[in-house]
Design a binder for these strands. Structure first.
Lengths: 252, 252
DNA sequence: CGTAACTTTGATTAGTATCAAAAATGGTGG
DNA sequence: CCACCATTTTTGATACTAATCAAAGTTACG
């Protein structure tokens, strides 16, 4: 797999079945590469999308800023994720996409995406599903922010990261590096950074997480996921392997 | 237009360009009708979708319930909306869809949806875009719940309803019937019903809204939308009419 | 008309924000 | 390699928004 776009195939394969031709088409898709420093904007609210960016390595987030100047992160994105699928079919972007770490992005022209989705229906379907799963995560964030208290909220976020990173092979054994400041975590869960600090401390004191700089490890998954009221259903990682029962959803 | 499915064409047409054949295909799609009482479930979390429901009249909502038993509504759906597009391509539903009023739903088989999206690429694209706009609304709700205070939050919700209902021709002059209890409004914005009551009172006292039973009217749009920090960009109603400038997004 | 559901009001509490400042960390250039 | 500076984390004290608890009105409806 000599292409840069391997992470995309890997990501789409977490939820969709791609055949050899599909994978080859993705890997062969024309694109260009850029490396962005932390804090760089991939997309800005109000932009008219000209190309489709996707993440090859590093972390990025979507966010919006209220009139009061408060920032709310609406999602975090990991390697392989096609962040601009939420923009390119709409005329104007309604949110910002900004890097959290140094990020390698690939950008494809809209025409290239069009070719992929048009000529390879499985790929188009996989991309649609990808955006549907993003939407499922947004819904869960609405619930998390709307109806869970601070401790649960943070615990839930940490669980989500663990599962998503593991599904991409980027975390082992419920331990991972979380290169976000407490300020950014606060903006992700709708709290203040001071309170995040206290909550992280409390989670650590209760033995629910172990912190070492920005590395998080989860000694007792059952406990943390219970506190965070976390179930991974909304991440839809169980799409595959259901086929034998005739419940295959890829009916195309 | 002798079909039941007119509202779907109307809804999709708020953001997508459909030609005569596309519209005809939608209107001719096989479906069955049901009328549901308020509080009926269209879909339940954990369901494996067997068909695709859509709303012809009335209001429905998506919601999830936390382990603590708190409910969070993640979106409200209006006539013409294809609520099950978020489920049918995934193996298991991650949320509930429940009626708020008496609702007429049409249900299509998965095969019928498949035919529509496969044989009429414009329709498939329009449906994808529809789910992308749903996702944009979820994002805005994350921001609303995460970073706005109670008054702004409720004001924002009322503005959203006004614009969405008007875009479907179901409200005039910034006045509309909102058949939701204060309990339901609370679950939509992540507050308690008692506080919703106080906020509505305050909005009325400030002249930002006029309430008459469950009818809301907005005497000064500029004021309410300012309080609610509301801009309609995220609803993506401006998809059309941009074509002359060569910025057409329907590049398929 | 009676009853359940919903709305409204009041009093108190709890959870998180805010304000302020000290300690720790991580880069950077000398 | 160390000194310095900016950023981030941590802690403490206080304020405030919205939750909770409780009960009285009001409305809708069979």
């Amino acid at each position: 797999m000599p292409s840069d776009l391997g992470p995309v195939v890997r990501k789409l394969s977490t939820h969709s079945i791609l055949d050899e031709a599909d994978r080859a088409a993705i890997l062969a898709a024309p694109h260009s590469l850029r490396t962005l420093e932390p804090g760089a904007f991939i997309t800005r609210e109000g932009d008219k999308p000209q190309y489709c960016a996707l993440i090859l390595s590093g972390l990025a987030c979507r966010h919006k800023v209220t009139a009061e100047g408060a920032r709310q992160i609406t999602s975090i994105h990991l390697p392989g994720e096609l962040v601009d699928l939420h923009n390119i079919f709409l005329t104007v972007s309604d949110h910002n996409i900004q890097t959290l770490t140094r990020v390698e992005v690939a950008t494809m022209t809209l025409a290239a995406v069009d070719t992929l989705t048009g000529d390879f229906p499985n790929v188009g379907r996989a991309m649609w599903i990808d955006t549907l799963i993003d939407a499922a995560i947004f819904r869960e964030w609405v619930v998390n922010i709307g109806r869970r208290d601070a401790i649960s909220r943070v615990a839930h976020l940490l669980c989500e990261f663990a599962v998503r990173l593991e599904s991409l092979g980027l975390a082992d054994d419920h331990a991972y590096d979380l290169p976000m400041t407490q300020d950014q975590i606060a903006d992700a869960v709708g709290l203040t950074p001071v309170h995040i600090n206290r909550v992280l401390k409390e989670l650590a004191e209760k033995g629910l997480i172990v912190r070492n700089k920005r590395t998080i490890s989860i000694p007792d998954w059952a406990k943390l996921s219970h506190v965070g009221d976390f179930t991974s259903r909304y991440l839809h990682l169980e799409q595959l392997g259901k086929d034998e029962s005739g419940e295959r959803r890829f009916f195309r």
